[in-house]
């Protein structure tokens, strides 16, 4: 085996993941090839150093509060969605009632009717857009590649 082919297998050898039949081959190469042996030794050293590095743990309070915080965030998200849906239903009903009388009223001039209608339409579009943003915030992007 050439050095270049051996190199990735040095990792498996180092991490104890080498297949039995490859093991002898690697050991033979290491005993014969000085440059690979040197490289392997420096990997051993790197591994020793990295194994000593440890991340500090969080406090018990933070771990204890971990689930609670997730639960609260989910609960709020759901609360928001329900609140918004309810608001839309009530609002649409109110708008519908209002327009039924307002637009049929012969004493209001046409220009005011048009103005108010456009204004209301704008308000509804804004509201719907905010709600949609909320909903999509909840389930975003990239799940295509997650489904393997």
């Amino acid at each position: 085996m050439k050095c270049e082919e051996i190199k990735p297998h040095l990792m498996a050898y180092l991490d104890g993941e080498i297949e039995q039949e490859k093991k002898g081959e690697i050991e033979k190469h290491l005993s014969e090839c000085e440059s690979c042996r040197k490289e392997y030794q420096s990997f051993v050293k790197l591994k020793e150093v990295t194994n000593k590095m440890r991340f500090a743990d969080l406090s018990d309070e933070l771990w204890a509060g971990y689930w609670k915080r997730i639960y609260r965030r989910i609960e709020r998200g759901t609360g928001w969605i329900l609140l918004s849906i309810g608001a839309i239903i009530l609002l649409s009903f109110g708008v519908y009632q209002f327009f039924k009388e307002f637009l049929l009223d012969p004493y209001v001039s046409l220009i005011v009717k048009v103005g108010v209608s456009i204004f209301a339409l704008g308000a509804i579009i804004l509201l719907v857009s905010i709600i949609r943003e909320r909903l999509f915030l909840f389930k975003t992007e990239r799940y295509g590649e997650v489904e393997k």
């Binding site: 969080l58 971990y66 997730i70 965030r73 989910i74 389930k139 799940y143």
Partner: peptide, 17 residues
């Protein structure tokens, strides 16, 4: 802390998948 929690929340939001 935030990002790992966000990942769990996305699991919940996408549990159907």
């Amino acid at each position: 802390y935030d990002l790992s929690q966000e990942a769990f929340i996305r699991v919940y939001a996408n549990m159907r998948k």
